[in-house]
Simulated assay, not measured.
Amino acid sequence: MPFSPSPYELDINDQIVALDAQLSYSLPAQLSALDLGSYDRIVLTGMGSSDYTALPIERDLLARGYPVWRIDAGRLLDFPQLITSSTLLWVTSQSGMSGEVVSLLAQLTGQRQPKTLIGVTNDEESTLARAADILVALKSGSEATVSSKSYINTLVVQYRIALALLGEDEAPLLAALRTFREPMAHLIANQAAVQQLVDQAFDNGEPRLALVGIGADGATAMTGALILKEACKVMAEGYLSGEFRHGPLETSGPGMLALLMGDGSDGTLQVLAKDLRANGTTVVTLGPQAYADSQLLASEGQHELLRLISGILHIQHFTVSIARARGLVPGQFLYGKKITVTL
């Protein structure tokens, strides 16, 4: 019996329209005028997937020698001294109304008032939008439940802002994203490979899921685990690089589905994939090439950002297939809400 698509699935299908809106949006000119060398530090903050989208930016800026802290807004409330009057504070909140972000903004007075506040949000009338010195809009449109199109647009915006701050031309990136529209549509429509994996995973009871990402792909691992919990109510955990070996490895073996994410060149995930396959774990690679002959859900395009978008699209298929297998409406909240305002 066919299912009627849930609001979450309709949002997934609307992701190309949302991306087009972002690509048609011009960034504020003030971004290019900022001198990163004039700040004592750059603080990247947000909650949940808004925080994780900054992970690739943190890596890039650190590699260039800038003093960068990526710290979620909840923890930043405990370390307000990290913000000084010479700080570039880059706050991301898809709603612009997350409880931790609103509380943080209320504390930005006196010596805690940053030199510049960049606000990234979808709601241009939100608390974050009103507080920002430079407002960057996501242009992802309304979203019913679990983040899908807003996450992809946030990823794109973070890369665009970074290029503007570094004085680099964004035209090649925008061209790559426009070329990516057709492969992206194919990825959104093609759920068959993921459905087969989910069917196999449920043959022996409900699966355990581990998502391990290395480098920029850590953003996909962390966000993927988050939306799996939200959209299909399974216990999925995200790990960065070698974290999985420090304890969680003992939970692997038959019944675990491990999703490994990277550019295919890293030896750490190559060895991990080999060890996991040897102990009976089902291993799947999300990326350009498989680790240790595991099953591959291929990414599209050469740019790092396109790989990250491809990865999250595959994981969205997992959220829908697993929810259906468990008799749930994909993306439907049972206890929480779209905007988390409670601290």
Rank of each mutant, 00 (worst) to 15 (best):
P5C: 07
S6C: 04
L10I: 13
D11Y: 06
D11H: 05
N13C: 10
D14S: 13
I16D: 08
A18F: 06
D20H: 15
P28S: 12
Q30F: 06
S32E: 10
A33H: 13
A33D: 09
G37D: 12
S38F: 13
D40H: 13
R41V: 06
R41C: 08
I42W: 01
L44M: 14
G46M: 06
D51L: 06
E58W: 05
L61I: 13
A63K: 12
R64Y: 03
G65F: 11
R70G: 00
D72L: 03
D72F: 05
T87I: 04
V91L: 08
Q94T: 05
G96M: 04
M97A: 14
G99E: 06
E100W: 01
L104I: 04
L108M: 04
P114E: 05
L117N: 03
V120C: 08
V120M: 08
E124K: 10
S126P: 02
T127D: 09
D133E: 05
L138A: 00
E143Y: 02
S150Y: 00
I152N: 00
I152F: 02
T154L: 01
L155R: 01
Y159H: 04
A162M: 04
L165Q: 00
L166N: 00
G167N: 10
E168Q: 12
E170S: 10
A171S: 09
L174V: 15
A175R: 05
R178F: 11
P183Q: 08
P183E: 06
M184V: 07
H186M: 14
A189Q: 15
A192C: 12
D199V: 15
Q200F: 14
A201G: 09
L209F: 14
A216Q: 13
G218C: 11
A219V: 13
T223N: 13
A236Y: 07
G247C: 12
P248Y: 14
P248V: 13
L249E: 09
M256R: 14
M256Q: 14
G264C: 07
G264Q: 08
Q270T: 12
K274G: 10
G280E: 08
V284G: 02
G287I: 05
A290R: 06
S299R: 01
S299P: 03
E300V: 12
G301Y: 06
Q302R: 12
H303G: 00
L306C: 11
S310L: 02
G311H: 01
I312F: 02
L313W: 03
I315R: 00
I315V: 07
I315N: 00
V320G: 00
I322H: 01
A325W: 02
L328N: 02
V329F: 05
